[in-house]
């Protein structure tokens, strides 16, 4: 009789302890979940969110960081002119050039070869000749040079410039037109809706038209035009 009483008592104590543990666990989980909800809500309510256009532009930035070369075609005097731009590593340079080795873009057009970096732009001949003014970097942006375009879009996103979005249909493909509304450095970009790859670019300033862009094929990268003189190869290397 006594042993049956004590076993009932200990079973009761066990189930009581279990109930207590379950209740404590539920309270702990409930408190943690409530606080998680509150902290999430606090962030959601108080902090501004980027616009859909800014998010799409950020996705285009991601595409650009993953590509090393872009070919472009623009219409000049009703004739298509194509160029190729590859990522390059430049340096060390003498004179007023950037210190050490820097990343840049090597742009090959039918008329010239141009090297654009964050610090300066150079015309590539037998030697590198520094170019003044903003024209070379605008040329690199219009040619869809991944790094130049990245820098331009990145700067606009850093400043959280408003980005207008308009869906368009071209050749059966869903595209998006992104308009970076900034008086001095405005930019228009058409990107593929599925991949966010840039398809065309235009700069708001001046009377530049659209340039069509496409990722460069491997065969383009062995083009003779890309080969530099042995002397220049010491300072300019393709970064692909």
């Amino acid at each position: 009789m006594a042993s049956s009483d004590s076993s009932i008592e200990s079973a009761g104590r066990r189930s009581g302890r279990r109930r207590f543990a379950v209740a404590s666990g539920s309270i702990a989980a409930g408190l943690a979940a409530a606080l998680a909800g509150a902290t999430f809500g606090l962030q959601a309510v108080t902090l501004p969110r980027p616009s859909p256009g800014q998010l799409m532009a950020a996705k285009t930035m991601r595409w650009l960081t993953r590509h090393d070369a872009v070919e472009s075609v623009k219409i000049v005097h009703q004739r298509p002119v194509s160029s190729l731009c590859v990522n390059a590593v430049v340096g060390p340079l003498r004179g007023s050039g950037p210190p050490g080795r820097v990343h840049g873009s090597l742009l090959i057009t039918p008329h010239a070869r141009l090297l654009d970096t964050r610090f300066a732009a150079f015309r590539v001949g037998r030697t590198l000749r520094e170019e003044d003014g903003a024209a070379p970097s605008i040329q690199a942006v219009l040619a869809g040079c991944p790094r130049a375009l990245e820098r331009r879009i990145g700067g606009l996103l850093d400043d959280r410039v408003p980005v207008g979005v308009k869906r368009i249909l071209r050749g059966g493909e869903q595209l998006v037109r992104l308009a970076f509304a900034r008086r001095d450095r405005g930019l228009f970009l058409i990107v593929a809706l599925r991949t966010f790859a840039p398809v065309a670019v235009r700069i708001a300033r001046g009377r530049t038209g659209w340039t069509s862009l496409a990722p460069a094929e491997r065969r383009d990268l062995v083009a003779p035009s890309l080969r530099l003189s042995r002397r220049l190869r010491l300072v300019v290397k393709e970064d692909v």
Binding site: S24, I27, A28, L31, A32, A33, T39, F40
Partner: peptide, 23 residues
Amino acid sequence: AAPGRAIGAALAPIASVATFPLY
């Protein structure tokens, strides 16, 4: 102690950190 709330308090910093990636 109020064990439920005590454990909840210990879990709170971890739960809070987890909300940032979710946000």
